Computed example of a mutant assay.
Amino acid sequence: MKAAVSQAKFRFTQWWQAPITRADRIRGAAVGALACFWIFGLGRLMLAQEPVGLSVLVWWAVGGAIAGILLGMRFPKAVTCILFPFSTFGITG
């Protein structure tokens, strides 16, 4: 068990310290877009005064997705690590 954890930690450290590649930027943009789509859309729904129009939610969600793409392209590894759990929201196995 300790060997598997140690090996996973070693692989993560190698990936984190490696130069950013095009694949990292694409992955970061995709994860950022999906995660921020859900965060902004649901956040606006929960924090807004009711009733909230569907068009308002869509605009917030799309704006969030665009912000996520920009963040994912600028900081691909950090966005991938932090926002990945949010990007899988609503997806069932």
Score class of each variant (00 low, 15 high):
R74F: 14
K77P: 12
R44L: 15
R25I: 06
I69C: 07
Q49H: 14
F37I: 01
T80D: 13
F89T: 14
V56G: 08
G53R: 01
W16M: 12
G43T: 02
F40M: 09
V5T: 11
T21Y: 05
F37H: 05
V62N: 04
P19L: 00
G90E: 02
A65S: 12
A30Q: 08
T21P: 13
I26T: 14
G32N: 03
A33E: 01
L45K: 02
V79A: 06
R25Y: 03
M73L: 15
A30C: 14
M73P: 05
L34Y: 03
T92G: 10
P19F: 00
F86I: 04
A8R: 07
A61M: 03
S6Q: 15
R11F: 11
G28W: 00
T80F: 03
M73E: 11
G28P: 12
I69L: 07
A23Y: 06
G64H: 00
L45S: 10
M1Q: 08
A29P: 11
D24I: 03
G90C: 02
A33S: 12
F12W: 09
F84Q: 09
K9F: 11
Q14L: 13
Q7D: 15
S55Q: 11
S6G: 15
I20Q: 05
C81D: 03
F89N: 10
W38A: 14
P19T: 01
I26W: 06
L47Q: 06
T92C: 11
R27W: 09
L47N: 12
V31P: 13
A65N: 05
L47M: 11
F10Y: 13
L47D: 09
A8G: 05
R27D: 12
Q7M: 13
L54Q: 13
T92L: 13
V62P: 07
R74D: 08
L45E: 11
G64D: 02
W16V: 09
F37M: 05
V62E: 03
G41N: 03
L54Y: 11
I82Q: 04
G68Y: 00
C81E: 07
L57R: 00
F89L: 14
G68M: 01
Q14N: 12
L34D: 04
K77W: 09
P76E: 00
V62T: 06
G43Q: 01
L57Y: 03
A48V: 04
V31I: 15
V5P: 06
A18Q: 02
E50M: 11
G72W: 00
C81H: 07
L57A: 04
A23H: 08
L45T: 05
I91S: 08
T88L: 10
V62D: 04
A35W: 01
G53L: 02
T13N: 15
L70A: 14
I82L: 12
P51D: 04
I66N: 04
R44P: 10
T80E: 06
P19Q: 02
W38N: 15
W38F: 14
I69V: 15
V52R: 01
W15Y: 14
E50Q: 15
R27C: 15
F10K: 06
L42R: 04
D24L: 01
G68F: 00
V31A: 02
I91D: 05
R74V: 14
A30F: 14
R44G: 15
K2Q: 13
V56I: 09
A30K: 05
A23R: 09
F12I: 06
G90F: 01
A48R: 00
L45M: 14
I20D: 07
I66T: 08
